[in-house]
Amino acid sequence: MAASTLERPLAARPSTWFVWAGMTAFGVFLLGILVAVVVDSFGRQWFDTWLPDGFTTERYVAAWDRFDLGEVVGVTVGVAVLVVVISVLVGVPAAYALARRDFPGKRAVMLLFLLPVLMPPVTYGIPLATVMYSFGLGRTLTAVVLVNLVPSVPFVILTMTPFIEQINPAIESAARMCGARTRQVFTRILAPLLVPGILAAAILVLVRTVGLFELTFLVSGPGSDTLVVAIYRGMTAAGGGEARQLISAMSVIYTATMLAMLVVALRFVNPTQLVAQVKETRDD
């Protein structure tokens, strides 16, 4: 009895059943949404029936041509990779300085990096987009990359700072006592130790950038739209059965792209580290 209560202390209570019922409802909705989109994207005609009256892959071909998805996917992946690389290059050194040094004004700097994460994207996105347009950067890839850096750089900093803090500073001292210069401390000792954290942060930035709608939408245009924005434009521009299935096809492509990037990224990082890192981050 004692052992079983330790393992499943809530098992027999009504509250537990309540939780499981809620979870089931959530799961039904989640799977329903996913499956509905996938079925719809392969459906021929689907109106007043349980399932479409036939299956085809031609929606994908149609959507691909109609929305120029080759370019859109290219833009999406390109923007995401650029944003990840830049925010890691900019964010990790800053996180190092914040983790290792106490200096006057540190709290102000932390606040500066925290604000873009706490503020609704629209609040700074609209003035930022206005600035972009006035610099003639509107609807360009440069603008899309730049606006995506605003939440990504602070995100890398906020993720990496606790990660660096938990690396014992004595290890760096030890390297110095062994005769390593600053550059060697970074390349030979710190870089290998930081790799798991950097990869985790990079994956999260990747997912966020691919999924980020508001900021990209404000400055992108034809030729610089990412997939989410293209889907949104498709949904708001057209209405009706035919278009809906094209949108569904596009949504499936979006999910597939996201999953593919995640799978590739996860080849390089242990998922448990990713989860642990997620926890680390959220704590701030």
């Binding site: 014992n168 004595a170 290890i171 001292s173 030890a174 390297a175 110095r176 006592m177 062994c178 005769g179 390593a180 210069r181 000792i189």
Partner: peptide
């Protein structure tokens, strides 16, 4: 420190 030529053993070992 790297040019003093001393060796050091740390309380936390500080192994790489």
């Amino acid at each position: 420190p790297e040019r003093r030529g001393f060796g050091m053993v740390f309380q936390s070992y500080a192994l790489f």
